[in-house]
């Protein structure tokens, strides 16, 4: 095995690790958007996807692309997502707040369905 082959192997492993972490964040963010109780809390879960998950996946793809013009384009996409996603989140949050959407501010801790049956 030559030195170049070892280099490619290391690059692939780093790329797979970044991709797997990013996918965990994206899937967890999507699950959080489904599970959390009200709009303002769901917004936080969507933010997880849009910041770290997206950036990790873009970096993984940059490693796969190597030192080419394609990598520069991927970097540009990542930069764009990094700039626009918090702005969009703030715009949605501000619009909801101005429209009089009241955030849930008490503790949200539902019991397991079986426990609730036990109480009743």
């Amino acid at each position: 095995m030559t030195l170049i082959e070892i280099g490619i192997l290391v690059r692939d492993i780093a790329s797979i690790a970044l991709m797997a972490t990013g996918l965990v964040f994206v899937l967890a963010g999507a699950l959080g958007v489904l599970r959390l109780p009200d709009f303002f809390t769901r917004m936080h879960a969507a933010g997880v996807t849009d910041t770290l998950g997206a950036e990790l996946i873009v970096f993984s793809l940059i490693l796969q692309a190597g030192f080419t013009l394609l990598a520069a384009k991927l970097l540009l996409v990542g930069f764009l997502l990094f700039l626009t996603s918090p702005t969009a989140t703030h715009a949605v949050a501000n619009a909801a707040h101005r429209a009089g959407e009241k955030p849930l501010l008490s503790r949200f801790h539902p019991k397991h369905p079986r426990d609730r049956e036990g109480d009743a």
Partner: peptide, 13 residues
């Protein structure tokens, strides 16, 4: 706003 947020996140994905 839930829908707008979901649409935006869907676009990112």
């Amino acid at each position: 706003y839930d829908r707008v947020l979901a649409a935006n996140s869907f676009g990112t994905k």
